[in-house]
């Protein structure tokens, strides 16, 4: 278990260094930062001074190592646009994105799993087939279209729910949460539905496919032969054996959701990291872009690692401390 853990962590660290290199290259070569930071009238002396201050006169390797060292300490430099500390800027926006993604993930599991189980065990029922059909539509609708339609229907026409912003937030330390106020919660509804729609259909189809597979296995047949109740067979034996892929996909999809939140956040003017990134792109605010890239990759890689470790928790066969082979003999 320890070896497995260390291996996974080393892997993750390696990937992060590679991403950092990429971010650094963008930072270094996507336009000259000196040109971007100073206006046209700056003198050569001013330019040189800034160049030295930013360390741009040193070797590339030294620059990368400095960049890496700073990044590890959470120092991504100063935003070109509003001269704010980039890490702080992203930190302020992160809770909005994570809360949105969290709600979307919970929605996708809470709605997607039961639908998947239902469509698998009653696969010939008309309702199950209708759900299958609807899910195809769900998969193929682009999320910005869904978002705009939802805004049109529920905020513009009906006026039930807010169509932009985060509502009122409460500050808990550095974390700003929308969960504690009515306006914060109602502001979450439409964007999280928009973000989770694809995810719900994904989970549902995944669970359905896995269930159909598992229901054909010998141990399910044997569970029935033991006279276990349908509910036990379906939820205790079958669903549990489907959870591995569901955990994997859900875990990995959280990374995707954070990335795709960019679109939803733009549609709903949601003040998250994605929205910040889009603004940074329009202003060629390179430190913000590089930092966003690093932060999102970091989350991605961490999720991957956590998912791998969760595997070991769910599946006893992967837990090396119990794997002693067929001790006892025949």
């Amino acid at each position: 278990m320890i070896v497995f853990l260390l291996k996974r962590l080393a892997n993750a660290a390696l990937v992060m260094v590679a991403v950092a290199l990429l971010a650094f290259l963008i930072f270094r070569f996507l336009g000259d930062p000196v040109e971007l930071m100073l206006n046209e009238q700056a003198s050569q002396a001013q330019r040189d001074a800034l160049r030295i201050r930013l360390g741009l006169d040193r070797g590339v390797v030294w620059q990368f190592l400095t960049f890496l060292g700073n990044a590890v300490q959470g120092d991504f430099g100063i935003s070109y646009r509003n001269q704010q500390d980039v890490f702080q800027l992203i930190g302020e926006r992160m809770p909005a994105t994570l809360e949105l993604v969290l709600v979307a993930t919970v929605l996708s599991l809470v709605i997607g799993m039961p639908l998947g189980v239902y469509t698998a065990i009653r696969r010939n029922a008309p309702v199950a087939q209708a759900l299958q059909f609807v899910s195809v539509v769900g998969v193929s609708l682009p999320s910005f279209a869904v978002g705009i339609l939802l805004i049109l229907a529920f905020s513009v026409t009906l006026g039930w729910l807010p169509g932009f912003g985060r509502g009122q937030v409460v500050q808990l330390g550095w974390w700003s949460t929308g969960f504690l106020t009515p306006s914060g919660r109602s502001a979450l509804v439409l964007p999280s539905i928009t973000l989770s729609l694809f995810q719900i259909t994904l989970v549902m189809r995944l669970v359905r496919a896995e269930m159909l597979e598992v229901l054909r296995t010998d141990f399910i047949r044997f569970a029935r032969a033991r006279g276990l109740r349908d509910r036990t067979v379906h939820f205790r034996h079958a669903l549990q054996n489907c959870l591995m892929p569901v955990i994997t996909i859900t875990g990995l999809q959280i990374g995707n959701l954070i990335a795709f939140a960019l679109v939803t956040e733009t549609v709903f003017q949601w003040p998250g990291m994605g929205f910040l990134f889009i603004q940074a792109v329009t202003h060629v605010d390179i430190p913000v872009m590089a930092a966003y890239l690093l932060v999102v990759s970091f989350i991605f890689v961490s999720l991957n690692t956590v998912v791998d470790l969760l595997y070991a928790v769910v599946d006893p066969r992967l837990r090396s401390d119990v794997v002693r082979g067929g001790a006892g003999g025949g």
């Binding site: 296995t217 010998d218 141990f219 047949r221 044997f222 569970a223 029935r224 032969a225 033991r226 006279g227 276990l228 034996h237 549990q240 054996n241 769910v314 599946d315 006893p316 066969r317």
Partner: peptide, 20 residues
Amino acid sequence: LRGREIGAIFQDPLTSLNPL
């Protein structure tokens, strides 16, 4: 009745038990 009055044993013991 299954399991209570009629027990069953299948061919492949490697796949008859729930692995989890």
